[in-house]
């Protein structure tokens, strides 16, 4: 399943309520159906950490960091990539996974 973020957030992804809706209505049901989820950020120039946190942090709690094998991020700007890296890192740090020497994706 591919989710077009721009369609839901516009060029600046900052609305956490929208992020939660995407997570609850789109991402989690797709993962429950054992589908791969592609979050397509084409057209999204920037996102807040709060938005990305609301979008994906709970996935780590529900599915562990193995969820990263099932959720991928497409067409991210450098700014969006940085935010995603930060959230992914601190969620895994919180799970006790050392991200210091993590391989580059």
């Amino acid at each position: 399943m591919t989710i077009d973020l721009f369609q839901k957030t516009g060029a600046f992804a900052e609305n956490k309520d929208v992020a939660r809706d995407i997570r609850v209505r789109d991402i989690i049901p797709a993962l429950e159906r054992h589908e791969e989820v592609i979050l397509d950020f084409a057209g999204v120039g920037a996102a807040t950490q709060s938005f990305v946190h609301a979008l994906i942090s709970d996935l780590f709690r529900q599915y562990g960091n193995g969820v990263l094998d099932r959720v991928a991020f497409r067409s991210c700007s450098e700014a969006v990539k940085q935010i995603i890296r930060i959230v992914v890192d601190y969620m895994q740090e919180g799970m006790g996974i050392d991200t210091e020497d993590a391989p580059e994706a």
Partner: peptide
């Protein structure tokens, strides 16, 4: 990483406690 919503690392589903630090 400090939020009023929880003491847990990683925050809650909606809050990480990072906004003001950023």
């Amino acid at each position: 990483g400090v939020t009023g919503m929880t003491r847990r690392d990683g925050g809650t589903a909606q809050n990480a406690g990072a906004g003001l630090f950023f």
